[in-house]
Structures are given as structure tokens and as C-alpha cells.
Amino acid sequence: MNYRIKMILTLLIVGAFSGGSLSFVYNKMLPKIEENLKKEIENSLLLLVPAASYKETSFQGKRVFICRGKEGEIVGYAIIGKGGGFQGDISLLIALDKQGKKILGIDILESQETPGLGAKIDEPSFKGQFKDKEAEKLEVIKGKIEKENDIEAITGATISSRAVVSIVNNYVKILKEFVEKNK
């Protein structure tokens, strides 16, 4: 009987210590962790739509940002898009201008594409192509681009390139609806 009590006591004490110290550390670290998460999106937002403040709302279950300048005027909109890539999901930020006509740019938030190939979707040579495109349906082209709404695929990573463009197409449509409703 005695050893049982000892066993239970040991586990209780260890558990209590562990739980106590962890909750203490958690509470200390939490603000910083949350700030990091927020910063990550805000850094991308600042790159795409330089603005004074970003207000996050939800539209059709998607995370949408309204970007305002110093005097509170709207300068643009952004949305977090998600979809399947070559490996795992790609999540990216897409920004539109205040009329919802032009793409201000995109930024990759998270992806697990092949290093050295598909991972090039995060390089300016690829994602920079989206800047200033009309907010219409975009198309992926292998080799030289010809039309206004063409995006040149990354050599050897056509699937990743297509995935990004299809996510952009899907979410631009949603964001345009949001802009219309917000006018």
C-alpha cells in the first residue's frame, strides 16, 4: 500500500511542478508569441499596401484586411488565401487597390514546396509578376509571356506555379466581392 501512495505522490508532485512552471512561462511568453504572429502578417501587408492601420475582419470565412491611410481613407484591401500546392498547403497574402481593380502584389506566408524549385514561388522574380496586374483571371504560361494576364511559370516547377495562380484567382474573386459590398 505504501509504495502505491509514493507512486501517486511522485507523479502528482512532478505534474504539479511541471504544470505550474509551464503556465508561468506561457503567460510570460504569450504576448511576445502573439506579437510575432501578428507582425508576420503585418510585415507582408506593409510590403504590399503601405498603410497606417490594418483592420482585420472576416468575409465568407476568410481573413480580410482593410488598409487605411493616415486620415482614415481606404488605400487597399488584402486577403489571406489558402490552397493545395505541390506538397502541402500554400498560404499567401493577396492585396488589391481600393477600387478592387488592380493587384497590388502577393506574398507567400507559408509553403512546403520543394527547396530550390517550387520554393522559388517566394522569390521576387515570380511573385513580383503579380504586381499591377488587372484583377482578372490570370494564366500560367511556360516560356515567354505574351498577354497582359500571363504569369511565367518557374522552370521545373509548373505545378507550384499553377497552384499559386489558381489560389490567387480564387481569392481575388472573393476579395472583389468584398470590395463591392464595402463601397
Binding site: V14, F17, L22, V25, I33
Partner: peptide
């Protein structure tokens, strides 16, 4: 395991925060 896990979670929080 509980002791090891405690330290692992500590490291995880530390990395995530800093």
C-alpha cells in the same frame, strides 16, 4: 517523460517568442 516534456515545451515557447 513529464520532466523531459516540460523542458521541451520551455524550449518551444522560448524559440517561438524570441
Amino acid at each position: 517523460i513529464v520532466i523531459i516534456a516540460t523542458f521541451v515545451v520551455l524550449v518551444d515557447y522560448f524559440l517561438r517568442a524570441n
